[in-house]
């Protein structure tokens, strides 16, 4: 009904479709930054932010945002002015644009195109470009090293990510994320398990592990946070940024985390499908389940972040090129074989 209404007004349609993911990202970023600090605090036997806003410092991120808005926008003297200013926006735009094909609920998807996954992977590779841009434009040696590392890392890790996404595509036979999700409805496996892809095929569990490791690297999370490894490169490509421009990087990073986690939820954990079949189904619950799955993956990423040391740059490459990539392609073949034999 609502769709029928907004479809008649194209401008409003576009605006609404643009505003919904943006709202989700912004609210999520505020919550996630606070949540990450709380989780870090609890893991480290601290309490994290406690003062702003009363209950457990819930307004801390808002206060930080206000602070960042007021900060001076510093532009280094010898920086490449245009690139330096443009990089953070490009980075955010890349991760924001990718949200268009994420099926948030059974009745809402930004753009129901039939090459959704392809589009998503294509758009997120722009992130690499913006990181290099930021690293180069800052005219700072640390930034440059960070940018170089990140270029190598993100380009490499896109390969296993895509290979594992392909394994799911082999099973589903569709690039449309809505279709992929719909295929995972119902509770038929062993009589009670939901029809999620991760339960459908043992090799998809391996695929998920590879996928998860790769998205850790794609979104610069520990143990692969080399581009901004604070104990080596000060802050990597973000070194020269301050105020809102830096906040854009932060926002993009968190958005990227959510995006890739949601992609994982769609591909392996049934997207907006309820784990209890029809119980607690429907569009609204669908949104709830979907976000829950995504946020759980985000939580695991944070949990890992506060546990592990980080890899070195050559080890990172070694893991990617000599372990993950061969493994993911072997896995792809095995999944395909399984599909041919059993289905």
């Amino acid at each position: 009904m609502i769709e029928g209404f907004i479809n008649n007004l194209p401008m409003i349609t576009i605006l609404v479709h643009a505003a919904i993911p943006l709202t989700i990202i912004l609210v999520y970023a505020l919550v996630a930054i606070w949540g990450e600090r709380k989780i870090a605090g609890f893991i480290q036997d601290r309490l994290g932010p406690m003062r702003v806003g009363g209950w457990h410092g819930w307004a801390q991120s808002i206060a930080d945002l206000l602070k960042l808005i007021q900060k001076e926008d510093i532009l280094p003297k010898d920086a490449s002015r245009f690139l330096f200013r443009f990089a953070p926006f490009m980075m955010f735009a890349a991760s924001y644009a990718a949200f268009a094909v994420i099926p948030f609920s059974s009745s809402y998807i930004g753009s129901n195109i039939n090459i959704g996954v392809f589009y998503l992977l294509a758009v997120t590779s722009v992130l690499t470009l913006s990181v290099i841009m930021a690293g180069w434009a800052s005219n700072n040696k640390w930034s440059l090293l960070g940018g170089m590392r990140s270029a190598a890392q993100m380009v490499s890790y896109e390969v296993p990510t895509i290979a594992t996404v392909l394994t799911v595509i082999v099973v589903s036979g569709s690039l449309n994320l809505m279709t992929v999700t719909e295929m995972q409805s119902g509770n038929d496996i062993l009589g009670f398990l939901p029809n999620w892809f991760i339960f459908q095929n043992p090799f998809l569990i391996v695929a998920f592990i590879i996928f998860f490791i790769s998205i850790l690297a794609e979104s610069h999370r520990v143990p692969f946070d080399l581009p901004e490894s604070e104990s080596e490169l000060v802050a990597g490509y973000q070194t020269e940024y301050s105020g809102m421009r830096w906040a854009m990087f932060m926002l993009a990073e968190y958005a990227d985390m959510l995006l890739l986690s949601l992609l994982g939820a769609v591909l392996f954990f049934g997207g907006w499908n309820s784990p209890f079949g029809e119980f607690m189904g429907g569009p609204a619950w669908g949104f709830f389940w979907f976000m829950l799955k995504g946020l759980l993956l985000v939580f695991v990423m944070m949990w890992i972040r506060w546990t592990l040391p980080r890899y070195r740059v050559d080890q990172l490459m070694h893991i990617c090129w000599s372990i993950l990539i061969p493994l993911s392609f072997i896995n792809l073949v095995l999944v395909a074989l399984w599909e041919v034999i059993f289905n």
């Binding site: 893991i43 480290q44 036997d45 601290r46 490894s229 104990s231 506060w306 546990t307 040391p309």
Partner: peptide, 15 residues
């Protein structure tokens, strides 16, 4: 540990 990116052991040690 902190130099190698592990933040949490640092705080456990400090405790």
């Amino acid at each position: 540990g902190l130099d190698l990116g592990a933040f949490t052991p640092f705080l456990y040690c400090f405790t």
